Computed example of a mutant assay.
Amino acid sequence: MKQLAESIIKDAYDSGASDIHITFEKTGGSVRKRVRGKMAAVRMLETDMLKRLINYLKFIAELDINEHKIPQSGRTSFYIGKLLCNIRVSTLPLTIMKEIVVIRLLNNSAEKTSTELFYNQSDYDFLLEYMKLSQGLILFTGPTGSGKSTVMYRLAAETAAEQTRQIISIEDPVEFDIDHVVQAEINDKANLSYGPLIRGVLRCDPDIVLFGEIRDKIIAEELLKTSLSGHLVISTFHSKSALSTLTRLKDYGLFKEEMTESISLIVNQRLIHAEQGSFIVYEYIDAEMIALHLNGDHPNYKTIGDKLSDMHKEGGLTDEEFEYYNRTFQ
């Protein structure tokens, strides 16, 4: 079973895939991979083989192989030859004794330098400058698979490499091992809520607090408080645009005054797959633009649509690619 799992995972890495989907079908099971944003078939498996593969993946990710009724998620790292595989395994129950598995390849962009992640290499340097702030909240937003975590962890890793500031992360689960960063993993079994955990982190004298993802009102409130107490906080959030991030935070019941005081930068990004390669493109609003919007004015900034138009004019996107992404990102 190890050989089958490694064969599927190595094939995914070799083809530049971001995810592997292992699902039940009427006549057995299917393995598919997501490459450049689109699904592609890999192979079919007999039902018995599929169940054994799922159990093996749950085992290496330190999940409960006897639990089939609730979703689980875990991470593991291992080598296939010289290839370092860093994966997150997530399960979703379907019926009794049946579940699907999705594997996220966490280091599939490891060979790219930080600036090579972006179409305009200066885009990374701009974000890196914001890591020099002594306090505030930086949010990386966008849909699943847009590279939010990749960018956030690259920035954290480069900042940590200087060894001049204490960085502590709170993650569920830990996705990337970063040198010189204290990484705390949320323990659901200990029933530890986010509030006490964040307050515990603050007692450990951090300069920068990295929080994996804002998922609810409680987390949002705690992170805003943390950013107002003299710490730089960076996190991710799901939203359609930079401005809609503020709308969603207001829906959580956050006051515009505390958002104006705390949020330093909101980045909303997408991952573009073009003939020239795959790139992250983003729009952003800074503290001044955030204040304008929250006070009823309309800030003037370059949207992702504007960035796509610039790429098209410069030859970075073909006519077909531009039309596709312009339509998709509406």
Score class of each variant (00 low, 15 high):
S15G: 05
T245D: 04
Y325I: 01
V209S: 03
S90G: 10
V31A: 05
G277M: 11
M152S: 02
I290E: 03
V181R: 09
A291F: 11
D48K: 06
T27F: 10
L155Q: 03
K38N: 15
A291C: 13
D179K: 14
V233D: 00
L232W: 05
K2L: 09
P206L: 07
G296P: 07
H312Y: 15
L53E: 02
L243V: 08
I290F: 08
R52D: 13
K132A: 04
Y119W: 08
Y252C: 14
H273T: 07
K302V: 05
L308N: 03
Y194S: 07
Y13D: 04
H298T: 13
Q3L: 07
R154F: 12
D251H: 14
I285A: 00
S134R: 11
L106T: 08
T164S: 14
L45H: 06
D177P: 11
L155S: 02
I80L: 10
I214F: 13
D319T: 09
V201G: 00
M152A: 02
L137P: 01
D177G: 04
D216A: 13
T245C: 11
L105D: 13
L249P: 03
Q163K: 15
S146D: 06
E25H: 01
K2E: 09
F279Y: 07
S15P: 06
V101T: 02
C204L: 03
F59C: 08
T245R: 12
M39W: 04
E221Y: 11
R32N: 08
R270V: 15
D177A: 08
Y130G: 14
S169W: 04
I100M: 04
I22S: 00
R75D: 01
K217S: 07
F322V: 03
S241H: 01
F211R: 01
I9N: 01
D64K: 06
